[in-house]
């Protein structure tokens, strides 16, 4: 009896002493260790509120569902097949592309040139910077409501001002004309974010040693050349980072268009996120909207990966 249990205990003990180190070895080889605990809180929140919703969206995209009634029909890839032949969806992609390119181009030019002007021994620099940054702090809702009023064809500030200075011919139906609506919204977006780009560019410019500029100046380079040959190449990493920020903003665009034009007239200013929203909430097509969301998420993921790659390149190049 006594002998047996001792053997049993010894076997258990030796099993543990064999198995545990094996687990340890395995764990060590594959770096399974407590360090992951540092990531777990973030991962938990992220899984709950980002990953799980994304998975549900993928699931919903295989159903025909109005989003209201509990009844839903599995239709496999039916929604995706419909997407491919949906001109309004294609138009929203196009609009989003225009949105991204136009906004980013304008923000790059405005942001850099303002920052370059600010990057000197200016007494009022903080004031200028704060003034330019002010719009960034204003919420998208507020910005859209305020600009919606400015763009009002009859009583809006923009048309009234144009008429007052005798440029009445330029007065336009900024949000009601399909040729203008998207660009009017883009202009608001550019106004909203220029300050952020200026501030970030300025920070980048300030890391350029003064001696470098002075040396170039002594070598006879004029201001224009100094900008093109020194400043712009040296802020390349900042530019690359801003490109990523700009792309994030473009894919996420929703509030401003939602309030300014609701995507109209007739889809002329509808971007992808707004199309998803309209389909799901206004047009009672939750299943189809989910399929569109999935496509949107895939596009977003591809852009993210591509840009991070490109960025690495720019960063190492600089």
């Amino acid at each position: 009896m006594h002998h047996d249990s001792a053997v049993g205990m010894r076997t258990a003990g030796s099993a543990a002493s064999v198995v545990w180190p094996a687990i340890c070895r395995f764990a060590r080889r594959h770096e399974i260790n407590g360090n992951v605990l540092y990531v777990l809180p973030a991962l938990g929140v992220y899984l709950l509120f980002v990953a799980w919703p994304v998975i549900s969206v993928v699931r919903d995209s295989f159903y025909d569902w109005d989003g209201i009634r509990p009844r839903r029909t599995f239709i496999g890839l039916g929604n995706y097949a419909e997407l491919l032949a949906d001109p309004i969806f294609l138009r929203s992609i196009w609009n989003n592309l225009v949105w991204g390119i136009a906004s980013i181009a304008a923000l790059l030019v405005l942001g850099f040139s303002m920052a370059y002007l600010l990057n000197g021994k200016l007494r009022a620099r903080d004031a200028y910077r704060a003034a330019l940054f002010l719009p960034v702090t204003v919420s998208g809702v507020v910005v859209a409501i305020a600009w919606g009023f400015i763009y009002h064809p009859e009583i809006g500030l923009l048309n009234s001002a144009l008429r007052t200075v005798g440029l009445g011919k330029l007065a336009a139906v900024w949000l009601g004309d399909p040729r203008l609506a998207l660009y009017s919204a883009i202009a608001v977006n550019v106004w909203h974010y220029t300050g952020a780009w200026v501030v970030i560019y300025l920070a980048g410019l300030q890391t350029i040693p003064n001696e470098l500029m002075e040396a170039a100046s002594i070598d006879g380079a004029n201001a224009w050349q100094r900008m093109w040959r020194i400043a712009i190449p040296l802020v390349k990493p900042t530019t690359a980072a801003l490109l990523i920020l700009g792309a994030i903003g473009a894919v996420r665009t929703f509030e401003i268009v939602y309030i300014l034009t609701q995507g109209g007239p007739y889809h002329a200013s509808e971007v992808m996120a707004l199309r998803v929203y309209n389909l799901a909430f206004m047009l009672h097509r939750a299943g189809y909207a989910s399929a569109l969301s999935v496509v949107l998420l895939v596009i977003a993921a591809v852009i993210t990966v591509l840009q991070l790659r490109l960025y690495r390149g720019a960063h190492q190049g600089a």
């Binding site: 260790n33 360090n35 919703p53 996420r252 998803v276 969301s293 993210t304």
Partner: peptide, 26 residues
């Protein structure tokens, strides 16, 4: 260093562009 470090980072970065409107219902 820990298991799944690379893939986990990618999982996080994939969320950079997530448009809120796309996942409201879930």
């Amino acid at each position: 260093r820990f298991f799944g470090r690379g893939p986990l980072l990618v999982v996080f970065l994939a969320g950079l562009m997530l448009p809120g409107a796309a996942v409201i219902v879930p």
